[in-house]
């Protein structure tokens, strides 16, 4: 018994991480931390994908997780570039100051 882990444990872990990430996105003003929280959420999702992949015995979930990583990489690259750009203009990285929707 001790060697088996019920699947919903993984799912709960994923949900907790996801919730933490979401709270981070909602609460933090610092754009960098918001970004990292997003990464956290992505990882939580990855965990779910991998869990179900294991559960179904089908490694397609791994592939999706791989693709998610690629997307996360792209997102991080572009997002950080945007942050740099905004920082140059406004000298702050606070997300609640970025509400003009166009520059």
């Amino acid at each position: 018994m001790i060697n088996t882990i019920p699947i919903h444990y993984f799912l709960l872990l994923s949900a907790m991480l996801f919730t933490i990430g979401m709270l981070g996105v909602i609460f933090r003003r610092n754009a960098l931390i918001v970004f990292m929280s997003i990464e956290l959420m992505l990882n939580a999702v990855n965990l779910t994908l991998v869990t179900f992949s294991r559960f179904r015995g089908d490694s397609s979930g791994h592939v999706i997780a791989f693709l998610v990583m690629a997307v996360a990489a792209a997102e991080a690259a572009v997002g950080l570039a945007i942050i740099i750009n905004i920082f140059r203009h406004k000298k702050v990285v606070n997300i609640d100051t970025m509400d003009r929707m166009k520059y």
Binding site: M22, V25, I26, I95, D96, D99, R100
Partner: peptide
């Protein structure tokens, strides 16, 4: 109003 966090709250 452009406040992304509010969007997110509404979304949630």
């Amino acid at each position: 109003n452009g406040d992304v966090q509010r969007y997110l709250v509404v979304f949630v």
